[in-house]
Computed example of a mutant assay.
Amino acid sequence: MGSQSEVMHCYEQIAPLTERMLVLARAKQWGELPRLEGQCSSMVERLKDIEPLSTLDEAQSARKYVLLGRISANSSEIVGMIMPQLSKLVGVMKSLDRQRSLHKAYGQPDDAYLP
């Protein structure tokens, strides 16, 4: 596969991956997102290596920007759904850390409250 078609192949793979991630995020199925994000990241890393060395024709450039628009819109919506979940997780972790500090300060073992 030549570098030119490989660049477009990467974009053609990333767009549906972000669409699938968006479907999962909307359904609050967070567990599958890291695997798909890893696939996207691998494709992006590959693009960083090959895209500067390639030249796209006018039609490919137009298609690339359509795909980038979809990828960007999907990513923005995903981030909008993930950030509240991350904030909630950070809050829970801080609460657990405070509880652990209190238990330690008052002489209770860390595992006294673990299920």
Results as ranks from 00 to 15, higher is better:
residue 1 M to Q: 08
residue 2 G to N: 15
residue 2 G to P: 14
residue 3 S to H: 11
residue 3 S to M: 14
residue 4 Q to G: 00
residue 5 S to K: 14
residue 6 E to C: 04
residue 6 E to V: 05
residue 9 H to I: 00
residue 10 C to V: 07
residue 11 Y to M: 03
residue 12 E to M: 09
residue 13 Q to I: 06
residue 15 A to M: 11
residue 19 E to K: 11
residue 19 E to P: 01
residue 20 R to I: 06
residue 21 M to Q: 09
residue 21 M to D: 01
residue 24 L to Y: 04
residue 28 K to M: 07
residue 31 G to V: 10
residue 31 G to S: 15
residue 39 Q to T: 13
residue 39 Q to P: 01
residue 40 C to E: 09
residue 40 C to G: 10
residue 43 M to N: 08
residue 46 R to L: 13
residue 46 R to A: 05
residue 47 L to R: 10
residue 47 L to S: 06
residue 54 S to M: 02
residue 54 S to K: 05
residue 57 D to N: 11
residue 57 D to R: 04
residue 57 D to S: 10
residue 59 A to M: 11
residue 60 Q to G: 11
residue 60 Q to L: 09
residue 65 Y to A: 03
residue 67 L to T: 01
residue 72 S to Q: 13
residue 75 S to I: 03
residue 75 S to V: 08
residue 78 I to R: 00
residue 80 G to Q: 08
residue 81 M to W: 02
residue 83 M to R: 13
residue 84 P to N: 09
residue 90 V to A: 10
residue 90 V to K: 14
residue 91 G to L: 02
residue 92 V to N: 00
residue 94 K to W: 02
residue 95 S to E: 05
residue 96 L to Q: 09
residue 96 L to W: 00
residue 97 D to R: 15
residue 97 D to M: 11
residue 100 R to T: 11
residue 101 S to K: 12
residue 102 L to E: 13
residue 103 H to T: 08
residue 106 Y to Q: 05
residue 107 G to T: 01
residue 108 Q to R: 15
residue 109 P to V: 07
residue 109 P to E: 09
residue 109 P to A: 14
residue 111 D to E: 14
residue 114 L to F: 12
residue 114 L to V: 15
residue 115 P to V: 11
